[in-house]
């Protein structure tokens, strides 16, 4: 006897490891603390490049200063690379990582 065809799509019940969707995870741009860049300069760069308010720019700068790093932007990889490059133009130490 032929086996009865399974009509329910079983794929719904399979859970894929998150690594399979690696490209969908956002990319973060992280700015690291360094002993050279002035606090006022870092704040000014955040405002100038990303249009952040003085309050937000200062908050991020303080996070960099006190915690050693801060995520300043995130999004698709292409955008993250452009943001990191612009930060490099200003001499800030920016890296790119995925969530």
């Amino acid at each position: 006897m032929a086996a009865k065809l399974q009509t329910t799509p079983v794929v719904e019940h399979i859970s894929f490891p998150s690594e399979m969707f690696a490209d969908d995870r956002p990319w973060k741009v992280v700015v690291w603390n360094d002993p050279i860049n002035l606090m006022t300069y870092v704040t000014w760069v955040f405002q100038r490049l990303f249009g952040y308010s003085l309050e937000k720019a200062q908050e991020l700068m303080m996070e960099v200063h006190t915690k050693g790093k801060a995520v300043v932007t995130s999004g698709e990889r292409e955008k993250a690379e452009l943001d990191a490059y612009r930060l490099h133009e200003y001499g800030l130490w920016a890296t790119i990582e995925q969530d």
Partner: peptide, 9 residues
Amino acid sequence: RIYPIAYSG
């Protein structure tokens, strides 16, 4: 410091 590493990983 002029050419920082972007992808440390």
